[in-house]
Design a protein around this nucleic acid. Structure first.
Lengths: 207, 207
DNA sequence: TTATGTGAAGAGTTTCACAGCA
DNA sequence: TGCTGTGAAACTCTTCACATAA
């Protein structure tokens, strides 16, 4: 157990381990080895053990890990042991698809998309997969009211930075950004950008 | 200039530099410094210079980089100086949104989505943003026929590995994978996985 | 005997700082 | 003088290998 600064890469792998464990039935497979987990997520057993060691001691020498226990621990570490309210800005193609996709996926809990925001008056009041669409004018108010801590950005690139600043001022701590711009955020706020065009372009190098 | 193995991170940054340069009008801004580029993409000037140094010498000491020239060079390095045929499997919400999003984006060229594939007979023959939907039975044939080298995976998780193997056998060299599974591919084939659920889950850690 | 937990070595990336050229 | 190109240092992350505990 080290509990120094945990590398961001490690944090990105923990949900993979969690998902692998969730595919297992604890009644049939009550115990797994780091090797088992590694095989399921496509990494090495050493890496699994090292990653876990940042947070404590979870296994038994010569035995392995208790599936149920390790799952609980991973959820606790990732703060997935409570409900998390997520907002989404942009009720266009991508935004709507993301909401539907998220609602449909089995392992979306405990992440709950509780509000969609858009500037288009015609969309306001309607719903996407049971999630209500609010006007951008209500952004600040709704973030506070619904206690939204995470925001998904899925709208055209105009004025993203201003919107982000507004969110941060209202208490948003993390962004999943699908807008193709680089964002500036203060210390303590996390942005994860997913840029399909960029990813496609860099893949071409390998063809 | 080094031209050893180029780190994957470098390849992922080059399209960002390219996009930054494309935002500039070469008539107004014919020359940029590494510092200018760094500011636009949110990195350091040293990193920009180091990254470029893997591929050759593109700037002039004391002056900077000629925008037009550097753009051309970046396109050449990334192989974006020719048309690239891309396929997409899965005409669901996400798949359709990705096709529309890609067609609409200004900097999508020279990447062209030339075929969508789905198992649903009812969708076959229809179009999404002018791209025809083919049946999965025609996958292998169409990949060869249209010379598809890259595939976007956006369908439910059943049997992905088998589909991937089929694509590889037909000549696909790179995948952008939105399916939440870890894929096994041979040396020489590149997979970039984008998993919204995983990204959201890891972001929670920082809230 | 088996599989964990973890220092230490190794590999990969970023940052630094300065020589060198326009 | 100004900004590039690049080794070398600093830092981060992964792999290794083995002491250790069940």
């Amino acid at each position: 157990m080290v509990q120094r600064k945990v590398p961001a890469v490690v944090i990105r792998r923990l949900p993979m381990y969690l998902r692998a464990l969730e595919r297992l039935d604890p009644k049939e497979v009550p115990i797994v080895s780091s090797e088992d987990i590694a095989r399921m997520v496509g990494t090495s057993s050493g890496q699994v053990r090292k990653d876990l060691s940042y947070f404590g001691v979870f296994g038994k020498h010569g035995v392995g890990y208790q599936v149920y226990f390790l799952k609980e621990e991973l959820r606790r570490i990732l703060k997935l042991d409570r409900e998390i309210k997520v907002g989404l800005i942009g009720a266009g193609n991508l935004g709507a698809a993301l909401v539907r996709y998220h609602q449909k996926s089995k392992d979306h809990r405990p992440l709950e998309i509780v509000a969609v925001f858009d500037i288009d008056e015609n969309k306001v009041g309607k719903k996407i997969a049971d999630v209500e669409i609010f006007h951008m004018n209500d952004l600040t108010r709704k973030i506070a009211e619904l206690n939204i801590r995470m925001m998904i950005l899925a709208f055209p690139a105009e004025g993203v930075q201003a919107v982000v600043d507004q969110c941060i001022a209202s208490g948003v701590k993390a962004f999943l950004n699908f807008v193709p711009v680089s964002l500036k955020v203060p210390e303590g706020v996390k942005v994860q950008t997913s840029d399909v065009t960029l990813e496609l372009q860099s893949l071409v190098y390998y063809t």
